[in-house]
Amino acid sequence: MKKLEIAARDQTPLIILDKENSIFEIRGYSYPDEALEFYSEIIDWFKEYIKNPNTETKLILDLIYVNSTSIKFINEILKKLDELFLTGKTVAIEWLYMADDEDMQQLGSVLKDFHKVPVTVSVKKNSKENGKQKMF
């Protein structure tokens, strides 16, 4: 299955969806002007992936800021992984947030409550850049 890799930009996150190497990551900022356009490609990728998935899938969500429209689409991605999880495959989400960011911690917990796929919500260890100019 073709790898999907999108470099992080100002308003959109880094995307690495690599079935072969089992790397599934979304990192950075998400507040695109054209959220549907940006995320439909990613949701389509997951739709295809769950037809023939790896035995184990771990998706890392390492986001600094997500606007409401992006959350809609992240929900759609997690719904796909819920479907996969319910077929008995090993699936997990790792939600990472910056140490003093209560909002992102809360968002992770909310997503964890709403989805069937297991979600771990943890503090990010390294406060390194996510391929973006903004400093923390």
């Binding site: 800021y65 209560e102 909002d103 923390f136």
Partner: peptide, 15 residues
């Protein structure tokens, strides 16, 4: 308001 990114700091305003 709290989600507004500050130009000088690159951070959100915060609650």
């Amino acid at each position: 308001f709290k989600d507004q990114f500050g130009y000088k700091t690159g951070k959100r305003y915060g609650s």
